[in-house]
Design a binder for these strands. Structure first.
Lengths: 243, 243
DNA sequence: CTAACCCCATAGGTCACATGTATTCAATAG
DNA sequence: CTATTGAATACATGTGACCTATGGGGTTAG
């Protein structure tokens, strides 16, 4: 019937535990600039404010520290670090920032990153993709075609994300593959917030189909070139939205 | 006399605290495959083995969990996750892996990432660099020239790292800027282990000087192109070393 | 003005105990 | 024999009381 992984993209129970609740409160607050760099939070105060034990507060601080959002020093407290120090590749941090105030800037940074990575990934994919991955690529490209008309944005998004994920995975580079989540977040954010109120442009859809073709024919240069057009279009869309 | 930052690349007191010692033991062990995916570690057992309190063990586990190296579930224990899930952009994880067994694979992945990112960063730098940054770039390129002969590899490395860091920073993209540490780790690893037993090739040095020129003249296309040559050379060097 | 010194606020660490929850497995029903 | 139910169990999770260590800052002595 329906494919096995057709369920909603629920997170695998990440918000379990008191400690995670604290994190879910502090992380967004810090990344949103609610606590400006230099602010000191004492663990005891945090424990009191969020009504948890000191142990839980300390665990949360440890995690924030590993993300370089804060630094914890004796006799001083937990100090919020400036944004330049943040571990901006941490999926958690990315999620928090995309949900917060400077969504725009974040989206722009990530889109530029995409424009650097995805074309190279497409070239590698053309050289290294398995037949199975080629088939997936074609399938999702055709899925995009099928859902590109008639206000089926959600279904279109699913195929779009799957397409880019497959390219990144097929590049056989773990660093690229790991950006799948980032790309998914960017595409989802774009669909759900800014642009894309109407059906996607047919040109964009066609480009995806042509990438799938190029990969299948092991034409790395062509795959790279077409993917470059796709990511440049994505950047152009952003510029139209917020100049 | 000597420049202020001439000292050894000490980490800024990251290994402070019992909790950090545990991490420094567990992280490398897991990333090196000493505990294969699926292995379960009970916190109590960890606390006993490393002679720390359960509280400390729990904090370490929390951090490892935030890096997606392990997952902690009730009634089951702390389960080691497969490498595909690891947060491979975490500087800590990168360091651990570069120190461990699959240095080679890791170095290769990172070099491919560089080849995607640095050319685009160079183009943006040419468009956006401040005069100050242009000066820094020239300074470090000349520093590379000056130290490229007579077995001054360590000094050469300092300038090489600073050069690439400046390019990434000048691109005005936080995601790119954050890769400065990664590039530094790759360059340092290359100098200290594999290749580069003799003086660097003069061609490579010249290419850096030309990138600095292109950026100063705001010629984005040229900067990108030359940087692409640099990163392609880096990949070729890797292939010569381990085919 | 500088250097040595001491105080104490705060993180760091330990322990004992209580709670909750998924897994497991056996007993029972169908 | 299979499926459902339910209790036992093992582990993480959470709490509070307590002690230790350290580094920032004020104070004093030179």
């Amino acid at each position: 019937m329906s494919s096995p992984q057709a369920g909603p993209p629920e997170q695998p129970a990440r918000d379990r535990g008191l400690h995670a609740r604290l994190l879910a409160a502090l992380g967004p607050a810090i990344t949103a600039g609610e606590y400006p760099p230099g602010t000191v939070l004492r663990t005891e105060e945090l424990a009191a404010r969020y009504e948890v034990s000191r142990t839980v507060a300390r665990e949360a601080v440890r995690v924030l520290e590993s993300m370089h959002l804060v630094v914890s020093r004796r006799r001083v407290g937990v100090t919020v670090l400036p944004p330049e120090q943040w571990n901006v590749y941490d999926p958690q941090v990315i999620t928090w920032r995309l949900a917060g105030a400077d969504r725009g800037r974040q989206l722009r940074s990530l889109t530029v990153l995409r424009s650097a990575v995805e074309p190279v990934a497409a070239r590698l994919a053309a050289e290294l993709a398995t037949p199975r991955e080629c088939a997936e690529l074609t399938e999702h490209a055709l899925g995009m075609v099928a859902t590109s008309r008639g206000h089926q944005l959600e279904n279109y998004l699913v195929h779009d994300i799957a397409f880019h994920r497959t390219v990144l995975r097929a590049s056989r580079n773990e660093m690229f593959a790991r950006l799948g989540d980032v790309v998914a977040a960017v595409l989802a954010g774009r669909t759900h917030h800014d642009v894309m109120f109407s059906d996607p442009r047919q040109e964009a859809v066609t480009l995806h189909v042509r990438v799938a073709e190029a990969v299948r024919e092991k034409d790395g240069a062509r795959a790279e070139s077409i993917m470059r057009t796709i990511t440049e279009d994505a950047m152009a869309e952003l510029d139209v939205l917020a100049p």
